[in-house]
Each structure stands twice: as C-alpha cells, then as structure tokens.
Design a binder for these strands. Sequence first.
RNA 1: GCGCCUGUAGCUCAGUUGGAUAGAGCAUCUGCCUUCUAAGCAGGUUGUCGGGAGUUCGAAUCUCUCCAGGCGCACCA
Length: 561
Amino acid sequence: MSLYERIKEKISDSLVKAVEDAKVAGELNFETLPSFVLEEPREKLHGDLATNLAMVLTKQAKRPPREIANVIIKNFKLEGTWVISSEIAGPGFINFKLDPMWLTGIIPEVLQQADDYGHVNLGRGQKVQVEFVSANPTGLLHMGNARGAALGDSLASLLSAAGYEVSREFYINDAGNQINNFALSLEARYLQLLGKEVPFPEGGYHGEDLIDTVKGLISQFGDKYLTVEPELRREFLVRYALNEKMAHIRQTLADLGVNYDVWFSEQSLHDSGYVKSTMEELEKKGYIYEKEGALWLKSTLFGDEKDEVVIRSNGTPTYFAADIAYHRNKFERGFDKVINIWGADHHGHVARMKGAMAALGHDPEKLQIILMQLVRLIQNGEVVRMSKRSGRYITLRELMDEVGKDAARFFFIMRDPDSTVEFDLDLAKAESSDNPVYYVQYAHARLCSILRQAQEQNLASEGVPEDGELQLLTSQEERDLLKKLADLPGEITIAARLMESHRLARYVLDLAALFHTFYNSQRVLIEDENLRKARLALVRCTKQVIRNVLGILGVSAPERM
RNA sequence: GCGCCUGUAGCUCAGUUGGAUAGAGCAUCUGCCUUCUAAGCAGGUUGUCGGGAGUUCGAAUCUCUCCAGGCGCACCA
C-alpha cells in the first residue's frame, strides 16, 4: 500500500473508532455504520481530505449532520493520522488539514522503488489476456486499428503495472468468407496485371495495396500461375498474400510499439477440428437446433436478441462458430480474465459471445469486452467514410509518418473509448507540434537537462537526502508536485479497476503542468546546499514518475528535445 | 421500429460511479528569456452540463420522457 493510502486508511480507521466510541458513550445513536467516503475536496480551501460521514449518519442518528460532525470530531483521535486540524463545513462535511510534512515521505518511496514506483498489487498475479486489433489480413491497418492498438497495448501495460500477468494476443482472421473473397480479388488482379480482361468480383477488396501485393508476387513468380488450375492458383495467391500482409501488419504494429505474445490463427481452429467439436459440445448440451437447413445456436436463452446461425445450410461454419471455439480455447488456457477490444460496430456480438460462453459452462463475467467508438476522419471539413472494401482509408502507417508514433498513441489513449473521436487530418498536420504529448515529453527533457547541469557542475547527489533536507520543500509548488507524485499508485489502481488508461494520460499531463509551474517559480541549482539536495531529489522523483507513466502508455521519454 | 453509445466553454475533450463555487488544452487578449530548455510560465475572457420532469440534505453523474448524432439488428466479419 502506498504512503498516501496508508494515511487515508489510518484516518478512516480513526473515524470509525470515533463514531463507535461516541455510540458507547451514548453521544450518538446508530445501528450499522453506513459506507462513507474520505476524499480530497475539489476546493483546496476545504482542506486536504474531507468526509461525508456525518451526513450519511443523519438518517439513523436522527440528528442534523453538523451536530453529528461535532460529536465525531470530539471523539476523533489524532495519533498517527498526520491530521493537524479538522473543521465542520457546508452541510456537514468534516474537513481535515494534514501536516504538510507527510508529503516529503514520498521522495524516499519513489527513489527506492524507482521503475516499480506506482505499481500496485490489485491483480495478485491473476492471468489476463488482452486481445486487440485482430485486423483482417486482407488490407492495411487503418485509424480504427490504430485506436485499438494504442488502447489495447496501454491497457495491457496498465494491468501489468497493477499486478496482473498479462498476455497480448492478435487473432488472425485467415479463414472463412472474407478469405474466399480475398482469393477472388487477388486472382482478378493477377489476371488483370498479366493483361487479361477479367471483371473485378463484386464486393471484392478494391484497395491499391492489393495491386502492389500482386505486383510483388509477379516480379517473383511471373505468370507461372496463369495456366494452373484456378483452385490451386487461388490457394497459392492467398498463401502468398496472407504472409505478406501479416508481415506488414506485424511490422507496422511493432513500429507503433505494440508487440504481441501470441498470434492466433483462425484457420488452426478449423484444421484441428476444434470448431467442429465445440459445435458438437453445444449440440450435446441442447443449445443447437436445425432450421431451414442451417444449425442455430439458441443464444436468446442467454439474452441475445435473436438466435444465430453457426453452421450454414451449405455446411460451412460461420465466423461466429469459429469465434465461439476461439473464446472457448481462451478460457481453457486458464485466464482469469479475458478482455477483448472491439469496434462499436461489433457491439451486437457481445451478448451472444457471452451467451455462448455461458452455454459452454464458462463464467461469462470473465469475458470483458471494451467497445471503442469508431474514429471519424475529417478531411477538408468532410467526413471520410472508411471501408476496406472500397479501399478508401487513411492507414496507420500514414498516420505515424504524419504525426509520429508517440503522438499517434497518446492522441488515442487520451480519449475515453466511449467517445467518438473526430480526427481532423488537416488539423493533425497543422497542430502536430502542439500535441499534448510534447508537453509531457518536454517536461521530461527539462528534468533531464537539470540533472545534466548538476552533473556538469559537480552538484549531483545520489541516494536519499536526510529528512531535515527534505523538509525544506515547503513552497506551494513543491508541495503540489509532491502530492501528485504520491497519487500515482492510487491512479493506477483506479485506472486498472475501471480499465481506463486515459486516466493515466490525464495524470501525466497534470504532473507535467505542476512541474513546469515549479520550474518557472524556483531554481534547483542554487547555492543553499541542503535545499538544492532536496530539490534535486524532487527532480529525480518527477523524472522517474513521468518515465514510469509514459512507459505504461508506450510513449518515449526523450532526454533532450 | 427495437437495442447500445454519445450530447459539458467558440473548437477538441476530462469530470475519481451522488458531494461543497463544473475543469483542462486549442483559440483569443496582456505580461515574463543577461539565471537549470520560451515545445514553457503567470494572468484576463468563455457555460440554460441537449430540453423537461422525478428521486434526496445534495444531480453533469441515478430514474423516466422527449430532441439530435453515431453504431448495430445477415446462412458478412
């Protein structure tokens, strides 16, 4: 538990003790202690911490809240709480002021824990899988995939910092209908490029990148497949193109700083007979029925709006059937939590996927699906419709070339997955240098610069300063900064519990702002040796914390800018 | 039509699951570089929290209803 959490817990305990003592003394009447909060008031004037305990007791105690607050304060014991004063305010809040010296305790904590500072043990080593992007290998990665990549990767890192054992996974959709479609599109391009007049298949993939792929193939193999049987030709084209596309996807994601633990092939589920046996399992349990020649899953039993086809009347399994098998496989691999990041256009899929897991006897609560709203691209003031089929989209690669890896990630991580982000391309280009990510990185570079100067002037100090030195950090700017540093473990806990990495982006922006304020108001490399040592320690801690958070977000922390 | 998401400053977005006078960035205006990086700082301006009703000590947050936008409701994925 972190320093700040320990203090809060101490005060909380003292509050509980106070009302219980009051009850015994006959000063307060209540049956069961209601839940109350002890939190930082928004308004600084209201002290460091405030509780609504008196207010939530009004019903049972049958007395006005301010009167109850009085009783609580009278019985409140200060020992070990760092509380130096308490007062009743507003409708009945009790506001506490802490001895500001508690804050300096954060410096040894950060320096000792270093790269691990901020890490918490919320997960207790539970195994979690995060599956994200899982883009179809039939085209290039687009803005939606970019958002999914940034969110998924930072969420995985966040959970890892919160004490979970995390595995990142990419599901390769290398089977099914879209692959047939892909084959036909490739074949048409192949024949066209070799001078044949053939029509492009309806609903095929129009992307330019497909033509490039086929050109590459032709330069390597020529017209060798012009005369072979169409079946074999398509098989070869698909194999070649899938390899090429997947290699490209891997590389692009790696360039974005995303590295997976597992690449899982959909085709492998068909090849091993796992899709089939999973359907048989469902049938055995009585959740499958036949209608109009197809096999249906009774997903309505589990809250779905309608039943779903799993095996088509032509005998082929649907995407849903393979996905059920895939998720069953995930559960069988022993994850305590399985997280999927899906585009909002898949939300209809959520209830039936959870239902299918329940049907197979797994706990659907272990499957958590984060839906992210789609990215709307604006160019020349107009919405650009993105679609793989039409081949009209801005790629992740282009985005990175335009704004850089760090900005691309930070831009998406900053936003709540539930919000539809409007990405104005022209604006992104124009504002690429005012991106908030630079604000944070600049703070880090400044911190490094101070430490470099200290080194050069032989003023650098190692280790943890004495208490007496640290207690010289008394300015408002220093205290605000220290307080923010102390907040990190709590922020990571909340962010991990809610699975919201955007909170960390806000946190690190706030931290950077507090540092810039401090930087402009006080100098670090000063004559006074004791204060200088204390400030240098503060600088080292701030640098460490920014680094740690940027590390979780997958954004680099440059030493110079 | 039904379901899910969204609606907060001129623009882009936060808001710790019900707390006190709703916050940042961009934009705009005014100051600050002979001193550790001005990609910075300080200050000014900006609000019917989409509308209405309800729940209670207290609502941007919970409930209902209406309005607007997005997405979904295939033997596509």
